[in-house]
Nucleic acid binder design. Structure first.
Lengths: 124, 124
DNA sequence: CATATAATTTACGTTAACGTAAACGTAAAC
DNA sequence: GTTTACGTTTACGTTAACGTAAATTATATG
């Protein structure tokens, strides 16, 4: 009972265009099955799309998202590969943690700016 | 005793190229003084640059960073403008808060991936 | 069966954010 | 005085991430 989606359904659900889905496929980020020439997306595709869009909101490039997804469902056996993967994962995590700090700083700045606006309004 | 910087000093300090600094100026994000044709950056310019690069790490476009900087040092008097500004600031904050959630989710995913890697390594 | 609807491929266009190269001015150092 | 180092402007090139348009095919519906 694996659910499947048409390209339009998926596009509408996530608020992207069909062009975008085809483009992601072209870049190897999605790989829907074909039902006599027309694309059929599985739940796995849907999950991938969710990860890609989350990555976009965080400012990742498609390539970065692709590499993260690869990490995520990589069933590598080779020890060397695994250690390389761990290194990569930790590197990415450090970037994200830096982002967290940046985010908090920017939220603080915005709060200061807003407070000053409000003050400016009330002390008429 | 306001400190000033050459284009190279500033570029080196922040790890960007001089081209980048000139480009930001062209886009109105920086406005260094000219000392007989050569650019001289003030502390204010330096702060702006820091904000711009922070924005970049968060995936903002230069235009967005510019608008945030405008909010930040806007001394607007007009009530209407101030209220518009507050609305804008709150909108941006909501985006950032969504980013925070995305970030935490992605960090979790990466942790899961790493743990699986490590397990894969130890259960040889 | 004709027509409307949605899918497909192919391909050129677009924008942001710089890179890169050319051609030139200036000032210190050898 | 000329080489070296750094600055300047002008301008064309590049990459990512799609947009957009054209031409074609397949399915459904009246």
């Amino acid at each position: 009972m694996s659910i499947e989606y048409s390209i339009r359904e998926l596009a509408d659900e996530f608020g992207v265009t069909t062009r975008t889905l085809r483009f992601y496929e072209e870049k190897g980020l999605l790989s829907p099955k074909r039902h006599n020439h027309t694309r059929t997306y599985s739940n796995a595709d849907r999950t991938r799309l969710r990860l890609i869009l989350r990555g976009k909101r965080l400012g990742l490039t498609l390539e970065e998202s692709a590499s993260i997804i690869l990490m995520y469902d990589s069933k590598t056996g080779n020890t060397e590969q695994l250690e390389a993967l761990i290194t990569k994962i930790r590197g990415k995590r450090n970037q994200l943690i830096q982002q967290q700090r940046d985010l908090e700083l920017m939220l603080l700045d915005l709060k200061v700016a807003e407070d000053r606006c409000i003050q400016s309004l009330t002390k008429v």
